[in-house]
Computed example of a mutant assay.
Amino acid sequence: MVLGGRDWQTVTAADRERPLPRYARWALAVRQDCPPALRAQFGSHPKFTHRVRQAGVLAGPGAYGTAHGPAAQLLKVLPLGQVMFPARVRDAEDALRPVVREHLGDREEA
């Protein structure tokens, strides 16, 4: 199913008016394009958040960059950011900047 920006707004409003069934919430929450605010609206029960994490959905690009997978994989994904998640590239840069400084410092050759 293809959902765009307005569709997500409609889903958000519908869930506020009358909460969606649990499976529908789960199916939407594990989509990578599900807005973080909507995912949070779906709930914060530990079992739900655990299942979302198991599906590979993280809190945001900062979480992906600082706690997920080897750095080599991250370096392969980052260049795709401008195309795949342009609205969240700034978040990823902000989260990774201190980590890069900590590990590489002023050594540009690193």
Rank of each mutant, 00 (worst) to 15 (best):
Arg22Ile: 04
Pro98Ser: 08
Leu80Ala: 07
Gly65Ser: 13
Glu17His: 12
Leu20Asn: 02
Arg53Gly: 05
His103Gln: 12
Met84Arg: 15
His50Asn: 11
Leu96His: 11
Arg6Met: 09
Pro19Val: 02
Leu58Asn: 11
Ala110Pro: 00
Gly69Asn: 15
Gln54Phe: 07
Glu102Gln: 15
Leu78Ala: 13
Pro46Ile: 11
Leu75Asp: 14
Val30Ser: 00
Thr10His: 12
Val2Gln: 13
Lys76Gln: 12
Arg97Ala: 12
Leu96Arg: 11
Gln41Gly: 00
Pro79Arg: 09
Leu74Ala: 15
Leu96Glu: 05
Arg51Tyr: 12
Val52Cys: 06
Arg101Asn: 10
Pro79Asp: 12
Leu20Cys: 01
Leu78Trp: 12
Val100Ala: 15
Leu38Pro: 00
Pro79Lys: 10
Gly56Phe: 05
Ala27Glu: 07
Arg53Phe: 02
Pro19Asn: 02
Gln32Gly: 06
Ala59Ile: 04
Ala59Asp: 14
Thr10Val: 07
Phe48Tyr: 12
Val89Phe: 15
Met84Val: 10
Pro70Ile: 04
Ala13Phe: 03
Arg39Tyr: 00
Tyr64Asn: 11
Ala72Met: 07
Arg39Ala: 05
Pro86Val: 09
Val11Asp: 00
Phe85Tyr: 05
Val83Gly: 02
Asp7Ser: 05
Gly81Thr: 11
Ala67Thr: 08
Ala55Ile: 03
Gly5Met: 06
Gly65Pro: 07
Ala110Arg: 08
Leu20Glu: 00
Phe48Cys: 02
Ala40Phe: 04
Asp91Leu: 14
Leu3Lys: 01
Leu80Ile: 05
Gln9Lys: 13
Val77Tyr: 10
Arg18Lys: 03
Asp33Thr: 06
Lys76Leu: 14
His68Leu: 06
Lys47Ala: 10
Ala67Ser: 08
Val30Met: 03
Arg39Glu: 00
Gln54Asp: 09
Met84Trp: 11
Arg22His: 12
Lys47Ile: 07
Asp33Lys: 05
Trp26Asp: 01
Glu108Thr: 09
Trp8Gln: 01
Met84Phe: 06
Thr66Pro: 04
Val52Leu: 12
Ala72Asn: 14
Pro35Asn: 01
Leu28Phe: 03
Tyr23Pro: 04
Leu104Ile: 15
Arg90Pro: 07
Pro98His: 08
Leu80Trp: 13
Ala72Val: 07
Pro86Lys: 11
Glu102His: 15
Val100Gly: 13
Arg25Ile: 00
Leu20Arg: 04
Gln32Asn: 06
Thr10Pro: 04
Leu75Asn: 08
Thr49Ile: 09
Gln41Ala: 06
Leu96Ile: 13
Asp15Ser: 06
Gln73Trp: 11
Ala27Met: 08
Gln82Pro: 04
Thr12Trp: 06
Ala110Phe: 09
Pro79Val: 10
Ala67Ile: 05
Val52Tyr: 03
Val2Asp: 04
Glu93Ala: 09
Ala59Arg: 14
Arg53Asp: 08
Gly43Ile: 02
